[in-house]
């Protein structure tokens, strides 16, 4: 299934003020993979996501989805295949009702209204908030907003799900629910987060970014336990792998 492949080759990006946020990144993500992208604040994670989605265009190098390069011409097609869930669901939800918000994407692709309805109901049911379809998004709780934001992307039936901090600002139960939900998807997933435990539980592969470069790329089970590497990149090993703070038992 090469058409679900996402490939980044020698990617560079400079901000207008001259700051080089991404310096020569290359990787390839295959169909069905769950990839966590981690790094300290300012490492270049969000810039990388913006480059993948074609919100920013690289100064050098290229991003391709399947065999199609991300360019201005191919954007509509690329964005139908890559769905992005924003860090702050309030940025994503702005229509009158949850239903209209989830229908926003499919309607933009001029789908028949019956098909739109089918997709919206399907997406809402999948994330478990069908009962909220007529509510105004700004009246929802944090977890419900997150679920609505995920549904608004799922309704476009993307091949690849890109998520920026999907568990940020959620209470433990909502966080667990979102993790279970994301774990149940068969999509190719790319997740950036500071929630290392979530990455540990959800992603098979992890890419560590440090100062705009890839510091490590490999199996999550190997990378996240490497305390030296994590320390050098401004990160920590997952809490689940740290020694018990009460009895001091070593993991």
């Amino acid at each position: 299934m090469s058409h679900h492949k996402l490939e980044v080759k020698d990617l560079h990006y400079n901000y207008p003020d001259g700051h080089e946020a991404v310096k020569g990144m290359s990787f390839c993500i295959h169909h069905g993979e769950s990839v966590g992208i981690i790094g300290a604040n300012g490492a270049g994670k969000s810039t990388l996501l913006m480059l993948l989605m074609g919100v920013l265009f690289p100064s050098e190098g290229e991003v391709s989805v399947g065999d199609v390069h991300v360019t201005k011409k191919t954007l509509p097609m690329i964005r139908q295949r890559l769905g992005m869930v924003f860090q702050d669901p309030d940025d994503q939800l702005f229509m009158n009702t949850v239903y209209d918000d989830v229908a926003f994407g499919p309607r933009n692709y001029k789908l028949d209204e019956n098909e739109v309805e089918k997709r919206v109901l399907q997406a809402l049911e999948l994330v478990g908030i069908l009962h909220l379809k007529d509510r105004a998004p700004f009246k929802l709780s944090g977890g419900e907003k997150r679920a609505a934001a995920i549904a608004s992307v799922l309704s476009m039936q993307p091949d690849i799900l890109v998520m920026d901090e999907p568990t940020a600002a959620l209470d433990p139960k909502s966080r667990r629910r979102v993790m279970d939900l994301l774990g149940s998807f068969k999509h190719t997933k790319i997740v950036t987060s500071h929630d290392i435990d979530m990455i540990y539980g959800m992603c098979d592969r992890t890419i560590v970014i440090k100062k705009g470069e890839i510091a490590a790329d490999g199996a999550t089970s190997e990378i996240l336990v490497n305390a030296e590497l994590m320390e050098a990149c401004g990160l920590e090993v997952p809490l689940a792998l740290q020694n018990c703070p009460v009895c001091g038992t070593q993991k």
Partner: peptide, 13 residues
């Protein structure tokens, strides 16, 4: 700007 980007990513033209 972020809202606009989120709209564009969902096919707004």
């Amino acid at each position: 700007q972020r809202i606009y980007e989120a709209m564009c990513l969902r096919g707004f033209a």
